[in-house]
Simulated assay, not measured.
Amino acid sequence: MSLNGKYSLGILLTFVLLALVMLYVFPFINEIIGTTNITAEKFFYSRIAIWLVLIITFLYSFFIEKQSFLLWKDKKYPITFYFTAVICLYFICLIGGSFLNVLVKILTHEKFSEKMTQLSSIFKNNYLLIIFTCLTAGVVEELLMRGYVQARIERIYNNQYFGIFISAILFGILHSTYGTIGQVLVPFFIGVVFALFYKLYSNIKILIICHFMYDFVSLIVMNLIDIKHLSAF
C-alpha cells in the first residue's frame, strides 16, 4: 500500500473510531452497568474512550505509516504570541459561534440541545469532571483533527484547502450527536478557524490551549447559569 493509501486508511480509522465512541459508548456502558441514566462516572469513562482513539491513531502512525504523528513540526514563538493568539482565536470563535447560533435559532426556531440539558446536571459543581472533559477535548480533538487529519488530507490531495475544509467538516459531523444544527455548524466554523491558524502558524499547542479555554468557559457558564435561562440565548 502506498503512503497516501495508508494516510487515507488512518483518517478513515480515526473518524470511524471517534464516531463509534460518540454514538455507542453510552449504550455500551449502560449494557455493562445495567442502568440507562447519564452519570458523571459514565461520562468520565466516555472521555477515557476518546483518549484510547488517540492512542490507537498514534500507534497506527508509528507502526503502519512509519511517520511522525505530527507531519508539520511545531514552530516556536515568543510567549506574547501565545497569549495574543489564544485570546484572538477565542474571541473569533466566541463571536462567530454566537452569531451562527442566533442565526440558526432565527431561521429554524431550534431548541437547546436536549443532550446538553442532560449533561448540565452531571457537570453541576463537578469541577474535576469539567477540567478533564475540557482537557480531553483540547488535547485529543486538536491532535486528531488538526494534527493528524488535516495534514494528511493536504498530503493526499496536495491541496491546503482540502485539508482545512474536510477536517472542519469531519469535526462538525462528530458533534452532530448533540442533536442540533447549531452543534454542527459552530464546531464546523471553529474547525475552519483552527485549521486556518494551524496551516498559517503550525503550532498545535496554541490550538489545544484555546480549545480547552473555549470549552472550559462554556461549561463554567453552564454550571453557574440555570440551563433554562441559558437556552434562551
Rank of each mutant, 00 (worst) to 15 (best):
M145F: 14
L20W: 06
E31A: 15
F112E: 12
N4V: 12
Q183M: 07
I87T: 08
L13E: 02
F15S: 00
I48P: 08
D74W: 10
I38N: 07
L107Y: 05
R47M: 15
L3K: 09
Y161T: 04
E31R: 14
G163N: 09
S121W: 11
S68H: 12
I106E: 13
I220A: 10
G97S: 00
L17Q: 01
T117V: 12
N125H: 08
L224W: 05
D226M: 00
I50L: 10
G191F: 03
L143N: 05
F99E: 09
P187W: 09
R152I: 04
K66A: 04
I29F: 11
L135N: 04
M145T: 04
L71A: 08
F15G: 01
F15C: 06
L207Y: 09
N30A: 05
L3C: 13
N158A: 13
I92K: 07
M22P: 14
F28N: 07
F44T: 15
K6I: 08
F194T: 03
I38Y: 01
N30G: 01
L196V: 06
Y60I: 03
T177Y: 15
R47C: 14
M22T: 15
V149N: 03
L143K: 07
I56L: 02
C134N: 07
S46M: 15
Q118R: 15
I130N: 02
G179E: 06
P27H: 09
S113W: 11
T35C: 02
F171E: 05
I48F: 08
T14M: 02
S8H: 04
C134F: 06
F189D: 00
F63L: 05
F162K: 12
K124I: 04
D226G: 10
I29N: 03
S218Y: 03
F188D: 03
M1E: 13
S61M: 01
N30D: 08
I122F: 04
I227M: 01
Q67G: 09
K124V: 00
L135A: 10
S218T: 11
Y161W: 00
L170P: 04
I29V: 04
F26M: 10
V21S: 07
K205W: 06
K42S: 11
P187C: 02
K42E: 12
K205S: 00
I206R: 10
D74R: 11
I56D: 05
F233N: 13
Y127F: 15
A85I: 09
K76S: 14
F233P: 11
G179K: 00
G163T: 04
T35W: 12
T133N: 09
L17V: 03
I204F: 08
F112K: 01
F28K: 07
L129F: 06
L196G: 11
A151E: 14
I87L: 11
F15N: 00
Y7H: 11
I190E: 00
I209T: 05
E142Q: 12
M1V: 14
R155T: 06
K73F: 07
R152C: 00
G182L: 09
L174M: 15
F212K: 02
L207N: 02
I166W: 08
